[in-house]
Design a protein around this nucleic acid. Structure first.
Lengths: 210, 210
DNA sequence: ATCCAAGTGTTAGTTACTAACGTGATGGTA
DNA sequence: TACCATCACGTTAGTAACTAACACTTGGAT
């Protein structure tokens, strides 16, 4: 029971943050990312522009969502080192996709709706797409570290980088397709299919049959 | 002989463009990308800030280099459709790497030196890295189009996207490693190894043995 | 009740970038 | 050779994304 309930200030802070982000995504979706200024977002949310920057360092961060990097890294670190690289990383990504979307029915819920709105913006807006790709790149570094290969072997490190980046790319393709389908296709399935298209069916066989 | 020689105006224009870019990369390398303003670059090059923007739409474009997208796309389109996707795309990328670096001795020449300076900045500076990744993403779309799969089959299109993005990611890993090695390792070899690490040795066998 | 710090607002900057207009040199043409 | 349209560049004014510094209000602990 180390879970202490959040104080009033924390709740307020979190609430304004959520409010600002919700208004931002709505305005961006309605009028386009470039056509909406940070001042517009602030006014819609009923706060000052400075407050927006206090919660989100840049305008782009209003849309970018934190990927469960910690979760994925732990999953990778826990996987058996005897398996091929793409299977270790790919398996973790499939599990992360399952955790992210709940993996239940075919109708996305409210939380998923917001995620889809953000992803749509990320795919269609160049500035956001670039930042999103770079955050995936950061996640890639975390995964490579979690793979825990022999740090003294530069060739092994290179192979780990290459395999991981390829897996991340497949994941990104699945995410893009997921937004195009408006979340109606199950994300873990899309990730699995993307990995299979890249690395062959046998590379993800255990996940398809299990 | 449809090659008409460039007029004086064109030569002057190209020269100022080259001058501005050279000063920019030098200043960015010496003092860091963020610490140097566009006005600084303009002053160093002996032009006005407006002239910089006339040649380079954004500050980032001072460093970003055009990828030989056209070349790669044609190569992909010309490859045999009976081969696996990753081999078609991977082969084109290896060929492009060969064309880009000349593929001669181990000591990089002047042109390659500049390319390496730009790549170093792209890897180390977040804003540039993001833009670079997005330009690779644009190239990916061109490659997928060049693959020319059945446009009416969404599943085939999805597999093409996944396989291509994974190849591009391996290519990026090779580029990163190439800059870390200061261009002393042959780029085509690095690309080949990155592809092999992702998709298995047999996926690029013809290129390793041939 | 009191004090501290967190959250917010306000103001004044810097910098990337755009739009509009003026100027001098260049290149084709009469 | 004379003319003029166009191109490259400069100047100025403006917008918008941020940043720094300071003041104010309010929640939370003593």
């Amino acid at each position: 029971m180390s879970e202490r309930q959040p104080t009033l200030r924390e709740r307020r802070r979190f609430e304004t943050r959520r409010l600002v982000q919700a208004h931002a995504v709505r305005l961006f979706t309605d009028h386009g990312y470039d056509a909406v200024t940070v001042a517009d977002v602030a006014e819609a949310a009923g706060v000052s522009a400075m407050t927006v920057y206090r919660h989100f360092p840049t305008k782009e961060d209003l849309v970018l969502i934190d990927q469960p990097a910690q979760l994925i890294a732990e999953q990778v670190a826990a996987s058996s080192a005897t398996q091929p690289l793409v299977r270790r990383v790919g398996g973790a990504l499939i599990d992360a996709a399952t955790a992210l979307t709940g993996g239940n029915g075919d109708e996305p819920e409210a939380n998923e709706r917001f995620l889809l709105d953000c992803l749509r913006l990320m795919v269609s807006t160049p500035a956001l797409r670039a930042r999103h790709l770079d955050s995936q790149y950061a996640l890639q570094q975390a995964i490579v570290d979690a793979l825990g290969g022999d740090a003294t072997d530069p060739d092994a490190a290179f192979r780990a980088q290459a395999a991981t980046s390829a897996c991340m790319a497949a994941m990104h393709t699945a995410l893009t397709r997921w937004t195009e389908d408006d979340g109606h296709t199950k994300l873990p399935d899309l990730v699995t299919r993307a990995l299979a298209a890249s690395f062959g069916d046998d590379a993800v066989a255990t996940y398809r049959k299990g």
